[in-house]
Amino acid sequence: MSQYLIRRLLILIPSLLGISLVIFTVLALAPGDPFEELATNPNVPAEVRAALRAKFGLDDPVMVRYMRWLLAMLNGDWGFSFVSRVDVDTLILQRLPVTLVVIGSSQVLALLIALPVGVYSATRPYSIFDQIANLLTFVGFSLPTFFTGLLFILLFSIYLDWLPFVYRADIDATGWAWYWEHVKQSIMPVAVLGLFQGATWTRFVRSAVLDMIRLDHVTTARAKGLPEQAVIVKHVVRNALIPVVTLVALQMPVVFGGAIVTEQIFRVPGIGSLLISAILANDTPVIMSVTFVFACLVLLFNLIADVLYGWLDPRISYR
């Protein structure tokens, strides 16, 4: 297992390099110049600007600049936010836990919906339950997260007045009240993301189980006289999860995209809303780093999927 993990980690390195190359290329190709402001400022003489450019190495060839940027990123020197005057890595570390909690709980919610509904639909294909579930999953993944978010706010915050629609980080309560407030303000963002993902995954689970249920080993298990529940759980679902895990890993970029939107709607102080505010404020170091962090998170979840894959499918474990 550890050997498998190490191999997987080694495969990550070229991917990370590739992603950093893509991000850097985008930045290098972009018009505009970090010293543009100095150029238009009449108090800064041209020689000073040239000296600054030379000092920060902006006139060097692209490859040299890429290597320098990469080394700085590796050393933990992620730059300095123009707007909030804080180091970018502290800023991101402040915001990251909220994002991870919201994404994590929404994924759990999605699984809690997708597994039972998908399996039940697939064991009774074309029944009334299956048809209704199918219709609802289509509605679920056709509703964009920003629209569901607004609908939830309209229903639960404006008409019913049950839930707050602005996420607050500073809640002045202690003990259970503090937890309760946090749960209350997390319900809508988590539900918006979780329902969307749940709808997509239900389809994956249903089709994977449907493929698996017709195979011979399932018939054998039934013929042995195993109870139906044991057949479904041990012989069908476990095997069906293998393709589902792959598809879920491929969905990770979509999940993070949805997280950015929900954080923006509900003003959740995570890295998604940090990215949007940085873009609106032209805060380039923050934009670059947050994009890179999102890429790393996607790769991390792919790694987790790979590990799960190795656990679910013993045939590929130690290869």
Binding site: S15, I19, G257, L297
Partner: peptide, 26 residues
């Protein structure tokens, strides 16, 4: 196929935002 897999692992929305932010004006 390596390129394809790399693109599949990219966080699409952040990069969309990044590209649009950088190239919109020009």
């Amino acid at each position: 196929m390596w390129l394809t897999d790399l693109f599949l692992a990219l966080p699409q929305l952040p990069l969309l935002l990044l590209v649009i932010y950088l190239f919109r004006d020009s």
